[in-house]
Write a protein that binds this DNA or RNA. Structure first.
Lengths: 210, 210
DNA sequence: TTGATTAGACTGGACTGACTAGTTTGATTA
DNA sequence: TAATCAAACTAGTCAGTCCAGTCTAATCAA
């Protein structure tokens, strides 16, 4: 097993996955065509099949690579440090970041595609569910727990409150992007205004009123 | 053109649309197969093509029939009469109704299918967008306008507030149903609890605090 | 250092087998 | 007599395989 061969493999693997991503994202699973994946990758069909044994396998590979990458971009696994950060500041920044990272054509296409194929690939649906909203909600829940302890918020069930906040923020923009295509994705300025109003609503409902 | 022939046409049309609905809803546009539509309708393939000129046309017909029907079920076009109804009662009932009518396997399948085909059928996406969330939001906006006049609510922009309320209510359950399939649809009891908490949050954010 | 050898990744394109949208035909039914 | 039927048919697509030969780069021989 020589070193040069390995980099060669990695290179064509990379080209194949990039090409497959583009083809699947534009045509869906059934609409995509392995010949055009090979063409777009600048590689023979044989090579595509040397790297993954079937169209299904390639599809799963592509989706998993994209969800893994997205999770890394948002960086929701880092434990936040809330010291010296007001609840308002934290939630405004977190919501804005989440909106701007998630509401991109590429991720919205991924979302549409996986939703359309949930029946055929239920595991991918589960994966997007858990790695998408699931992580954001967990992060919000930790924050709500913290700010409840400091007394800035008042909340019995941080997880439930986090879920409500998450969908208050993400529901509308996501829905528009699902049904209206890339044209339905709001501008960053609109997303920021939206985040601000969501935080206002959330704080009004969960701040100590006394 | 005899009368008997007309009812005959209507009957097979009905059977074909019902069969097509089932086939498309389970397999999507590309995965569906016109032979199985004909079989399931108990009709020859020829008859299917006598009623609509192509697979695309049949698909559009099926989706439009379903969205039209759903809109009627929710009955969001009736002008509500708010007299003698507190804001809390109104929003709780409206949200609960909306959740229970919308969160059904059939409509969630429709939603998944249309989202997956938005690129191929952008008009259907637009139609679901406007007839789905669009109508609910318009209804909520009218209510918010009313309760702002009575002083029960405090709100500068009823349409924006209505949008936030709508997604606070629908975002989470819808997302779960999109990614987890029919198993992700919450029970009616859960939906009711959810609606109650959403109304609490909404009223906290938009009630006069003075 | 240079030139031959070799393993295995890669190519291009033909091929198989299965599937399917839509049409045609000629008989049947209500 | 118009709608319907069954079934064969056309024409095209596409996943996956096969094959015969090429390219790359590491290793070894001179």
């Amino acid at each position: 097993m020589s070193n040069g061969a390995e980099t060669r493999i990695r290179r064509s693997r990379e080209k194949i996955l990039a090409a497959a991503e583009e083809v699947f994202l534009h045509h869906g699973f059934l609409g995509a065509n392995m010949d055009s994946v090979a063409d777009k990758a600048g590689v023979s069909k044989q090579t595509v099949y040397a790297h993954c044994k079937s169209k299904e396998a390639l599809f799963v590979l592509v989706v998993e690579r994209m969800t893994g990458g997205a999770a890394k971009d948002i960086g929701e696994d880092v434990e936040d440090d809330f010291e010296g950060l007001s609840a308002e500041r934290f939630f405004l920044e977190a919501a804005t970041d989440q909106l701007i990272v998630v509401m991109t054509p590429r991720l919205m296409r991924l979302r549409r595609m996986v939703i359309g194929e949930v029946e055929r690939f239920p595991d991918l649906g589960r994966s997007l569910h858990d790695n998408g909203a699931g992580r954001s909600i967990a992060r919000y829940a930790r924050a709500i727990g913290h700010y409840t302890k400091t007394g800035e918020l008042h909340c019995d069930d941080p997880y439930s409150a986090a879920t409500h906040f998450n969908w208050l923020v993400m529901g509308g923009p996501t829905n528009a992007a699902m049904f209206l295509g890339d044209a339905g994705i709001p501008s960053n300025a609109d997303l920021k205004d939206h985040a601000r109003e969501c935080v206002r609503i959330f704080l009004a409902a969960f701040s100590e009123c006394a």
